[in-house]
Each structure stands twice: as structure tokens, then as C-alpha cells.
Design a protein around this nucleic acid. Structure first.
Length: 874
RNA sequence: GGGCGAUUAGCUCAGUUGGUUUAGAGCACUUGGUUUACACCCAAGGGGUCGGGGGUUCGACUCCCUCAUCGCCCA
């Protein structure tokens, strides 16, 4: 059978993905088996696949494939979210390109365009995930705005309103002047910027004196309604009760006193602009100040500003400074570094703005969700995120859930002509409620008007683990079976946006957690620790990587350096390493499949020994991997099987059983080897689904409809592990001989003779393997030192390779002396411990015994080395 | 300004309730290799006073304090 010397992923990946789909292996329906469920963090419809998705979904696929092989009913639900702000922005831009202004369209006409856009672009990421091998149940694909999910969102709004958790209030919100909507606190990103601190003089009314205030936003003076001092500040005692004039517009405003003012900062005098700063707003409330809103929604100045009407807020800042200077109001300008909030969506500076919005009260709802995480009912991996979570939950703020947009779930609030309102799931119910409320049975839909705004996208995502199983529908079969889900895999950057809120919703609506475990991935960065971004151009296209290194190679690459929660520094040498590993497996398979099998020849002793060892080694490997998976150390689990396949299986086992060139292999050894290979492929399958399927199908004759992905994951047999340590001794022996060959320039093909003076713990169990791998023509067990030989030690046994005339006495002496010094140093450390009364009396017995064993071993080695040195010196 | 976390080999990280041969892995590096599975390979090797200082302990990479540096979250 001819097999190419290099693995070619592109030839196999599409073939097996289609095979899996055709056989419906990804599909899950409730049955009597234990369910294992993951809901995908829904990528938003405007996105394209990036490295973060690759990492995230690779991990989910590993977990789900493993669970499936462990006999569970594995269900991975895919889907997307509608990304209210981002999608609306995309659609508005697209319409603009076509010469259409959103304002000219009706709500329904705009939504038609948005749906068209979503249908065209929405599923791209999910299609790309198939290339990665994602084994999602595609029949379950959900969208936050489809019928089932939308109904859930509206039902929940009505329910929370009826429970008294939702209220409408005029508050200071984070206003996005580009998207023209409020955004939540979580959607504001604070960045440190170099700015200026402007010192401005305000003339005291009826006097030539003035006070100086410091501000970073001089344009907001037009909205000032007070100047504030600290009542304890003696510098300003004389100002109490006076009034000052706002520069340029000469508005008379009071000087008020409030302890909020930091006497150390700036001049100790603070201007108060209640409409445009959250702290000023609170001070304004305390002192009954007027709020003057000087901005329009798009960030230009309004009529209320009196000056610069219609001009952009940043242009005004540039213009007002010369004007203030000319008016003699500018005292000085200093450089200043401060943090400014930017919109996560549009990257424009957030403008604090007073407006009427809908809020969700969080305090009560958050309690069970906080408790659940602190008590590990929901487990975070890594644990350190528990602290972050607690801090947020204990200080949780009410959630601003309304957005001034059209694309999303329209708020089910209906206003009556008198300004009162009713809340209902649909028009019909709203009308009924309105009639009840007013006692006017003649009301029609024309008399009530639904709120124009939509809900925050996260107000639908937070229901995701419930809504994808139609948790708010009539038929509860699915939710009863799949909920709670098992694992959630997501980036730690959305712990508040999404994870915390899902946990809250889970407890509120099902009385229990939405998922048992949360695995937080790190952020994918480039080698220089920069975030991957389009503008930097430092993010590779995942599909290009797959084409270059194969999906399995990329999956392995993503995982090789991704401890939970830590940042992942991506570099192309990672998928390259993954590809190399795939090729290693491919070639090991090529070797095994290339052997000719002879039923009649006897199994060599060396093969028997190697099989006994690798059987135990594999058993231990499975146990180690299980342990890693239980603790969500997924990259460690991969590293375990990586090392075992490459080092133990390929470099030791296969070399030990490999027949001589062009000689056949006995049937028993082939059978054992084939079984080992089969198990290794199964262990590898969750990480490398395509290659493992390709080889598993070729390893034996398989029936149509068979697949490694639905085969059983190997389990621990509980074999005696002591053989593994004995084999390590054999490796040291082989290594010793190899070193001698290298030092003496003896090629591998020249057979050598070896004598072993056995020390404590020596085992002859692997002598046959030793002869084969060290290429020995003679192996003698001796009871005394061998003259005229090069020697080395394996633990307390001494190995001799006779080498008449080739011995470099000086070099041997140097080697032995160095080793002796090391052993003596080591013994000294051990003796120091054992010489300490308090160590011997207070350390556990086992620890002391271990030290005594170290002492005995070291003394035996020192004795041997001393004798050998003396002999050489003769 | 408040809080959290980190600092171990050139790089990225393990180190699992303080005791397994005076610290481990992967990558990178050095040396040697046309062995008939694989150069996307094989064999061997170098490299760290575990950020600094102090303390607790018979014993500290591991626990406590402190300083320094960095990162993240929140205001």
C-alpha cells in the first residue's frame, strides 16, 4: 500500500466533515442517556471569524467530542446574536451608500433592509466554524431575533416588569453621539488620554474679584449652573453666599458648598454642569440646581448653549479657548492625563446625558447568582475570576436596557394619550390592558403607541441557555432534558456583559444555574502582546491558516499555549508545530501499515517486553488525561498525549518492536501495536478530529456508518505502574551506550558488548529491549568491575562497555571526578537534613525514610565512583 | 483613587493542599546525523542563586510582611 510521506489535510477534511454530517453524528435528541450540553457564545451577525473564535470553539469542540465518546448525549447548540448597535450601524451605512437616509424610511422598511443584510451576512461565522471541525448540532441553529428567542425576550420583560424589577427613569446615561443611543456602563471603555487642564476665571458678581476653576472641558461652561467649594476650605470663606458670572455668556450662578470638592485638586473650586457630568448631576440634585443641556443628540451644541449653536463639541473646545483668552478669562493651561470614556461600538467619546431610559433593578436578582459562584455551585476556571465576579456583583448597578435604535426587540410598553402606559406581550393584550386601565372600551390601537426603543442585545443573550431550548414555550421536554448545561467557554472580557447575567437569569427562571462550569479563555494577542485587531493588521485570517496547516494543526496550535484565563500569544510557529505533530502521527501510521505480517514467526522477547511496558504507560496516560480534563487543564491534556505519542510511542515503543529491514513482523506484535494505535487515535480525536478519523478508518476494515467520533474513549484498566519506572532505567541504559558511541565515534551499526554490575533495584526485565536499542551482541551480568572498559552508572548499577585501547584515561577520570563531586554535594545536603534532630523528629516518617534512601543511594554511588577512580589511577 | 492578579530557562508557561534525588515542559538555541516511517525528522547537549529584602518552619518556588515592576477590572 502506497502512502504519501506527508499528511495532506485538505484532501481529508471536507470528506470526513461531510461523512459526519451525512451520518447525523452531531445531532442530538433527548433520550435515556445522560446529556452533555454546551451552548455556543453566539458570535454577532456582523462579525467574521477571528482568532478568539478559533480558540474558543476549538475548546468547545474538544469538550463536546470527548463527552460524546464517553457515551453521553452530547449537544452543542450553535447560533448568532443580532448585535443591535453594530448591525444597525452597518445597515445605516449601506443605505447611505445607496443614497438612502434612515430618517426617510419607516421603521418597517428599515427593518426589511436589516433582515436582508442579516440573511446575507449573518451565518458566515457559523459556516467558517465547520472548517474548523466544529461538531455543532446544526439543526438547532438559533438566532436571538428568531421567533422563539424573541418571544422569550418579550415574555421576560413583561414578567420582570410585573415583578417590579423594571422601571423607567430619567438618569444620567452613557450617550453614544454616533450611534445615537444610550449604552450600558459595560459598553464604555475608559482610555487614558493626554489632554489639557484649563484654568478659567469667573468674575464675582458685583465685584472686580474673580475665582479660578480648573476644567478639562471648557466648552461645558455654557451649561454651568453653579460653582462649588468645599465648606471646610478656608481660602474661600469670603465667597460663601455670593454669585459669579459664567464667562462669555455672563450667566449669574450661585457659589454652593459641598464636601465632594477635593481641596487638593486644581484650584479647589469646581464648576458644576449637572446635565453633562455624573458627579455634577448628583451635586445638582442635592442643591436643587437647574440642568442646562447644551448638547444635541449628535454631539453638536444646542440652542441652550447660547453660543456656537450647531457646531461639534470638539470644534467648540478649540474655538472657545481663544474667545476666553480674549475675554481675559483664561488664567493658564496645563498638560494633564486623564481617562475618557469611549463607546465600545463606535469608538466615539461618550457624552454623559440625562435621558429617560428603562432600567432593570439588579440588587435582588444578583443575590442568588453571587452566592452560586462563591459556593462553587457554578465553578469558574480559573478560580481567580471568582474575585472579579464578586466585586462586580456586590456593587452591581441597575442595568440600562433600552437603546434608541430600531434593530432589536421593541420594548413592549404602550403609552396612552395621558402619558401613562401598559406593558404587554403583544398589541392585543396591550389594548385590553389599556381598556381596563382607562375604563374606556372604545379604545383602538390608534389610541396607544408602542415605545420606539429596543432592548439591549445582552437582554436577549442573557436568556440564551434557556431560550435555545425554548425554555419559555409550551413544550418543556427539551429544556427539562438539556438544562442546566454543562460547560460554558468564553472570553473573560464578557464576564459581566454576559456570564453574570446568564447566571442571574438562570436562577430567576429555572431556580438553578445555567451551566456547571465556566471556562474563561484568555485574549489572543500577537507576539508583542498587542491585541489582535483589524486596524493593526496583526491578525491572521483563520481560514488561511487552516488552508496552510490543516484544521487539526491549527487546533493543536491554538491549544499548545493557552492556559485557562491567560493571554495567548499567537505566533505562526504554533500551528506549524501542530502540523508537524499531525505529520508525525501520519508517518507512525505509515510505518505500522507498511509492515508485512507473518503468522508463523515467533514473537521476539524484546517485543513482548515493550508491549508490557507500553500497555502500562498508556494506562497511566489515560489516567493523567482524565485528571487534566476534570480540572479543565485542556492544554495539559493535549501535551500529555502529544508527548506520549511522540516520545514514548514513536521513539521508544515503535523502535523496540520494529522488525529488521525488510523483515516481516509477527502477528501478535502487530495486533498489540494496532490496538495501541487505535487507542492513541481515540485519545487524540477530540483535539485532531480529521486526522484521527482518516487513520482510524484506514487502520482496520470499517463498516459504512462507523466513525471514531462515536467510538468509545479508552478507559483506565488500573495496571501496575511500577513497570514504567523500571523501563525508565532501561532508557538510561540505552542513553548511556549512545553517549559512549558518540564520544568514541562508534557508529550505530557496529554492535557492542555490555556488562552490568547490578545494584539495588536493577531489573533484567527489559534486557532484550536493551540489546536491541543499544545494538548489543553480548550482554553479561557481572559481580565485579570490568577492566579495560568505559563505564557509566544507572542509579546504583554500573554498566561497562569493554573497549581495549580506546580508553582515554584522563577523560574518564575527569568524568568520574565530576560525577563524584556532584554526588558528594548531594549527600552533604541530605546529611544536613538527617543530622538535624528536629527534622528527624518532626518530619513525617515517609519523608525521613525517603531521605535515608537518598543517603544510601548516594553512598553506594560514591563508593563505586571512588573505586573506579582509584583503579584508573593505578 | 478603589480592587484583583502576576513576577520561575532566550520565549510562552507548569509546579495540584510546604518534603520524589540541590527546579520541569514545549518552543527556540548548540553539536552530531544521507539508519530503509517521518529533515514537518533522529540522537545528544547547554541554559534558571524560582523579581529584591525580611519573617514563619526541622524544611519555602510553595505560607506571611514589605519594596519594585507589570497587567487587568472598576470609579
Amino acid at each position: 500500500m502506497e502512502i504519501a510521506s506527508k499528511y495532506n489535510p485538505s484532501a481529508t477534511e471536507d470528506k470526513w466533515y461531510k461523512y459526519w454530517m451525512d451520518n447525523e453524528f452531531f445531532k442530538s435528541v433527548p433520550d435515556e442517556r445522560e446529556p452533555y450540553t454546551i451552548v455556543i457564545p453566539p458570535p454577532n451577525v456582523t462579525g467574521v471569524l477571528h482568532m478568539g473564535h478559533m480558540l474558543n470553539n476549538t475548546i468547545q469542540d474538544i469538550l463536546i467530542r470527548r463527552a460524546r465518546m464517553m457515551g453521553k448525549n452530547a449537544c452543542w447548540v450553535p447560533g448568532t446574536d443580532h448585535a443591535s448597535i453594530a448591525t444597525e450601524a452597518k445597515v445605516v451605512n449601506k443605505l447611505k451608500e445607496q443614497g438612502i437616509d434612515k430618517k426617510q424610511l419607516s421603521r418597517d422598511a428599515f427593518l426589511d433592509h436589516a433582515w436582508d443584510w442579516t440573511k446575507e451576512h449573518g451565518g458566515i461565522i457559523l459556516q467558517q466554524l465547520k472548517k474548523l471541525g466544529a461538531s455543532c448540532d446544526w439543526d438547532r441553529e438559533s438566532f436571538t431575533m428568531d421567533k422563539v428567542r424573541s418571544d422569550a425576550v418579550i415574555k421576560v420583560f413583561v414578567d420582570l416588569f410585573e415583578k417590579g424589577y423594571i422601571y423607567r427613569g430619567v438618569r444620567m446615561v452613557n450617550w453614544d453621539c454616533k450611534a445615537l443611543t444610550a449604552v450600558s456602563d459595560e459598553e464604555v471603555i475608559y482610555k487614558e488620554v493626554q489632554s489639557k487642564l484649563y484654568y478659567l476665571n469667573y468674575q464675582i458678581e458685583g465685584s472686580d474679584e474673580f475665582v479660578t476653576i480648573a476644567t478639562t472641558r471648557p466648552e461645558t461652561i455654557l451649561g454651568d449652573t453653579a460653582v462649588c467649594i468645599n465648606p471646610n476650605d478656608e481660602r474661600f470663606t469670603h465667597l460663601k453666599g455670593k454669585r459669579v458670572l459664567v464667562p462669555l455668556i455672563n450667566r449669574s450662578i450661585p457659589i454652593i458648598e459641598d464636601e465632594y470638592v477635593d481641596m487638593e485638586f486644581g484650584t479647589g473650586c469646581l464648576k458644576i454642569t449637572p446635565a453633562h457630568d455624573i458627579n455634577d448631576y448628583e451635586i445638582g440634585m442635592r442643591h436643587n440646581l437647574e440642568s442646562i443641556n447644551i448638547f444635541n443628540d449628535n454631539g453638536t451644541l444646542s440652542e441652550a448653549a447660547e453660543l456656537y449653536i450647531g457646531e461639534d463639541r470638539f470644534d467648540v473646545r478649540d474655538k472657545i479657548i481663544p474667545a476666553l483668552k480674549e475675554a481675559g478669562s483664561l488664567a493658564k493651561i496645563e498638560d494633564y492625563t486623564n481617562k475618557v470614556g469611549y463607546s465600545e461600538r463606535t469608538d466615539v467619546v461618550i457624552e454623559p446625558k440625562l435621558s429617560a431610559q428603562w432600567f432593570l433593578k439588579m440588587e435582588e436578582l444578583a443575590k442568588p447568582a453571587l452566592e452560586a459562584v462563591m459556593s462553587d455551585e457554578v465553578e469558574f476556571h480559573p478560580k481567580k475570576f471568582k474575585n472579579v465576579y464578586r466585586h462586580w456583583m456586590e456593587n452591581v448597578k441597575d442595568w440600562c436596557i433600552s437603546r434608541q435604535l430600531w434593530w432589536g426587540h421593541r420594548i413592549p410598553v404602550y403609552y396612552l394619550s395621558d402619558g401613562s402606559y401598559v406593558v404587554a406581550e403583544n398589541d392585543e393584550k396591550a389594548l385590553t390592558l389599556a381598556k381596563e386601565k382607562t375604563g374606556n372600551t372604545a379604545l383602538t390601537m390608534a389610541d396607544i403607541k408602542q415605545d420606539e426603543d429596543v432592548l439591549d442585545t445582552w437582554a436577549s443573550s442573557w436568556l440564551w441557555p434557556l431560550s435555545v431550548f425554548d425554555g419559555y414555550g409550551e413544550d418543556q421536554t427539551e429544556i427539562d432534558y438539556y438544562y442546566p448545561t454543562n460547560d460554558l467557554v468564553t472570553g473573560h472580557d464578557i464576564i459581566f456583559f454576559w456570564v453574570a447575567r446568564m447566571i442571574i437569569a438562570g436562577y430567576e427562571y429555572k431556580g438553578t444555574f445555567p451551566f456547571k462550569n465556566v471556562y474563561f479563555t484568555g485574549m489572543v494577542r500577537d507576539k508583542q502582546r498587542r491585541k489582535m485587531s483589524k486596524s493593526l493588521g496583526n491578525s491572521p485570517d483563520p481560514l488561511d491558516l487552516i488552508a496552510k496547516y490543516g484544521a487539526d494543526g491549527v487546533r493543536v496550535g491554538m491549544l499548545l499555549c493557552s492556559p485557562a484565563g491567560g493571554d495567548l500569544l499567537f505566533d505562526e510557529n504554533l500551528p506549524e508545530q501542530g502540523r508537524n505533530f499531525a505529520n508525525k502521527i501520519w508517518n507512525a501510521f505509515r510505518l505500522v501499515k507498511g509492515w508485512e505480517i507473518d503468522e508463523n514467526i515467533e514473537q521476539p522477547e524484546s517485543a513482548k517486553q515493550a508491549i508490557a511496558w507500553f500497555d502500562a504507560k498508556l494506562d497511566q496516560t489515560i489516567a493523567t488525561m482524565n485528571d487534566h480534563f476534570e480540572k479543565y487543564r485542556i492544554s495539559d491534556a493535549l501535551m500529555t498525549v502529544y508527548t506520549v505519542f511522540w516520545q514514548e510511542f514513536s521513539s521508544w515503543y515503535l523502535e523496540a518492536v520494529k522488525p529488521a529491514y525488510q523483515k516481516p513482523l509477527d502477528a501478535a506484535t502487530y495486533k498489540a501495536t494496532s490496538e495501541f494505535f487505535d487507542k492513541l487515535l481515540r485519545l487524540l480525536h477530540p483535539f485532531m478530529p480529521f486526522l484521527s478519523e482518516e487513520l482510524w478508518q484506514a487502520l482496520e476494515e470499517r463498516q459504512e456508518g462507523e466513525s471514531i467520533m462515536v467510538s468509545e474513549m479508552p478507559t483506565v484498566k488500573g495496571l501496575d505502574a511500577s513497570i514504567i519506572d523500571k523501563f525508565e532505567m532501561l532508557k538510561e541504559g540505552v542513553g548511556g551506550v549512545r553517549t559512549i558511541r558518540k564520544e568514541k565515534n562508534i557508529p550505530m551499526k557496529d554492535a557492542l558488548s555490555l556488562s552490568i554490575f547490578a545494584g539495588e533495584g536493577f531489573t533484567p526485565d527489559f534486557n532484550a529491549v536493551l540489546c536491541k536499542l543499544a545494538n548489543l551482541n553480548e550482554l553479561n551480568m557481572v559481580n565485579e568491575k570490568v577492566e579495560g572498559a568505559v563505564s557509566f552508572m544507572v542509579r546504583t548499577s554500573e554498566y561497562f562497555v569493554p573497549m581495549e585501547g580506546l580508553i582515554d584515561v584522563e577523560a574518564e577520570l575527569e568524568k568520574l571526578t565530576k560525577e563524584l563531586a556532584h554526588q558528594e554535594g548531594f549527600l552533604k545536603g541530605v546529611m544536613k537534613k538527617l543530622g538535624n534532630e528536629r527534622f528527624v523528629s518532626s518530619a513525617p516518617e515517609a519523608v525521613v525514610a525517603k531521605e535515608r534512601q537518598k543517603q544510601a543511594d548516594a553512598e553506594a554511588k560514591i563508593k563505586t565512583l571512588t573505586e573506579s577512580i582509584a583503579r584508573l589511577k593505578k
